[in-house]
Design a protein around this nucleic acid. Structure first.
Lengths: 141, 141
DNA sequence: TCTATTTGCATAGCAAGCTATATATAATTA
DNA sequence: TAATTATATATAGCTTGCTATGCAAATAGA
């Protein structure tokens, strides 16, 4: 119960709930964050292009986009050259929360790491990247 | 996208999918693990007692227990002294996978941390505990 | 003792992840 | 060009988490 796996899972659940509470006033939920970040950088992407920037499965993204459209954050338009594809566009509402959302996310990251020194934080992030790399290796075996 | 929050979430999802694949042959899923660990230690607990050992919400546990009963891992009996409560008992099937499940979990933990030295692993676990503590503090404010 | 409150568990409903599969269109090849 | 294969997205169905709420039994108070 004090294993790495347990701690990782616990930490992730706690973190996502903090994020959920903090971004609720903005009208978004945690799962929408990665897609929004990418679309704020580059609007009008297809789902496939957006997918390539995120670490989730295609079906997960499709469903998340449907909820984002329902919530007025994006709209999907038909692709000019490919009738299978659709381009994804952030709405005015989706744009308007951008700065607040960024600030909130950065703030949470800071607060959550506040007990760690700068070097410890760096080490921690490095360990996570190494573990992630290792898991991806394991998976592909 | 390289923030602590993103990495934590990503790591947790990767890890749970590895666990899912590895324990599938045993007839269990990751969400059942914590409850099983606790029940293997002490059988016949009430839901409330079991809940106090886990870091999940009551409703989540109730649903997980229902699936565990469906899957033949546990049975729930009426409590001898309190008609509201039920005692939870691991079945023969649930017991039979105990050693395999333990081994699998420990094996995954080892593999996943294989790139970190012993000191690094210790530091990593310590950081996670500190971050978890911090998040819990934030939450209660 | 009767009523009100508390407690133990279940249920409803949602989000966000997954795999597997369907569907329509595009691209390739015979 | 017609048939096949590949691709872009959607849908179905599941798990596992959450909050909010329901319900019956136990406990406490008047």
């Amino acid at each position: 119960m004090n294993s790495a796996g347990y701690l990782v899972n616990n930490m992730a659940r706690l973190l996502v709930e903090v994020l959920r509470k903090r971004v609720a006033p903005l009208g978004i939920v945690p799962g929408q964050f990665p897609a929004l970040l990418a679309l704020w950088e580059k609007d009008g992407l297809t789902q496939k292009e957006l997918l390539s920037m995120l670490d989730i499965e295609q079906a997960t993204l499709a469903n998340t986009l449907t909820r984002m459209e329902r919530d007025g954050l994006i709209i999907r338009k038909e692709h000019p050259a490919d009738a299978r594809a659709r381009t994804i566009h952030v709405t005015e509402q989706g744009s308007s929360i951008r700065d607040d959302a960024y600030r909130t996310a950065m703030q949470i990251n800071e607060e959550v790491l506040a007990d760690l020194s700068e070097e410890e934080t760096k080490a921690f992030l490095g360990y996570m990247r190494r573990v992630i790399g290792r898991i991806k290796d394991i998976e592909s075996t």
